[in-house]
Design a protein around this nucleic acid. Structure first.
Lengths: 238, 238
DNA sequence: CCGTCGTGCGTACGTTGTTCGCATGGACGG
DNA sequence: CCGTCCATGCGAACAACGTACGCACGACGG
């Protein structure tokens, strides 16, 4: 007779089978969308729940906690990286396209920079394992000495991640303040000039390569560094 | 007459001039200690306040945000990195010791891995600027073409940061679960073997260089990668 | 027909960052 | 010497967070 039961009866008879309700894949996919749209701070259990038209705590039936969700999300975006299987002769070309693929993944999901330090590069997500396997196969078939294949991969991945981290953090900061790159330089150019005043070498190099558009310049710097890293790795072959 | 005033009178007549009370430097220093001891999650305004024998909200008189505090803390530990000014002939040796100095800073403060993605590598903290200036001077005097000095520094720094990020995240994860490296492998060895089962190349390389102690192996992998990166940069010198 | 199970969710608790306004006591002008 | 001001510390309060708990419901196996 208590009216307690009425609301639950009325508000939620909407249990229908056409709606698969909630699933782990759905949750992870929507989390990626939310992260892409609004960044890491916006990834709240409540907000994610609302986006899925579900209660916040419903997510816990499919995901242990927020940390596990983040690990799943990271592995998910690692899955976007694909490595073409090319002929062993062109291991350098394959490594180059692989590196670019990783970098563009990072730039597509800049929030990953805020998260990489918490999950590390090496855990056991299926997509990460597959990526490592492919890279390992690449260097094996190219004839790298077995003892060096691992360190070589770590080296180029460390470079790619380090560069991507830097760029992603910069872009995230810009996005959070709602500014474009030009806005920022116009706004903080003076302060920056003042901060660089005691540093002659920095002043001298400031504005180098400034003729290109920022995005293009970042790409070329990345390509340059990657080429140098692969140069260093090259002569060790066989 | 109300007893409201009594506690404040009794509990806090301890305003004495010998105690400089609170200062920005003190706060940052204590924050570093807290971070080193208990990691990023433990850096709470209340806990930090208590450690300084102060109220939590007192910190806001000297620091705008938690975010600003973190930026200050990052610049603080960047200050621990020193670059010896060596002769221009041995730029490679100088770069090597500089890279090792950065890496050991990261390993001394592993929490920085969780934070690097939020502040980026390039902001305008004085210590960071000084570090960049020194590295720039190093390569300038070594005769690097001006257009390449910047990208070259970015390359080696990206490698060092990437590697350090990876190692720091791994160590943080171990520390948080209170395990040693051997513990972890004993505990998750089977799961790991199972996860690697579909990946022949990973299986083949697993356990390579396993004869050395983990710390030593990480050091050697880092030295190897750094040497290769510098190899790649070397021939570009005029 | 009845128990059991998987799943969604309302409620609630403890903790966090941060704001606000008050209290305090030294500095300083008269 | 006194009154005023200002920098600083802090208690209380608030919104938002992650998450534990327990109940409700539909499906299903006996």
């Amino acid at each position: 007779m208590s009216t307690d039961e009425i609301p639950s009866v009325w508000t939620r008879p909407r249990r229908s089978r056409e709606q698969p309700a909630l699933s782990r894949r759905q949750i992870v996919a929507e989390a990626v969308r939310l992260l892409d749209a609004e960044g890491l701070d916006a990834l709240t259990m409540r907000r994610l729940g609302t986006r899925l038209e579900a209660g916040a705590t419903s997510l816990y039936r499919h995901v242990a906690n927020r940390d596990e969700l983040i690990e799943l999300v990271v592995d998910e975006v690692y899955g976007e990286i694909d490595i073409p299987d090319t002929d062993p002769a062109d291991w350098r070309g394959a490594a180059t396209t692989c590196a670019h693929s990783i970098r563009s993944m990072i730039l597509r999901h800049p929030w990953i920079a805020s998260v990489l330090g918490q999950v590390g590069l090496s855990y056991l997500g299926p997509n990460v394992m597959r990526l490592n396997e492919r890279m390992m196969a690449m260097l094996d078939e190219a004839g790298f000495p077995p003892a060096e294949a691992g360190p070589a991969i770590s080296t180029v991945v460390a470079f790619v991640i380090g560069t991507g981290l830097n760029e992603a953090a910069w872009l995230t900061m810009l996005a959070r303040s709602g500014q474009t790159e030009q806005d920022w330089y116009r706004r903080f150019g003076p302060s920056l000039g003042q901060a660089m005043e005691p540093f002659p070498h920095l002043r001298a190099h400031f504005g180098a390569n400034a003729d290109q558009e920022p995005t293009r310049r970042r790409e070329e710097n990345f390509a340059y560094g990657l080429a140098r890293v692969l140069d260093g790795l090259s002569p060790r072959r066989t």
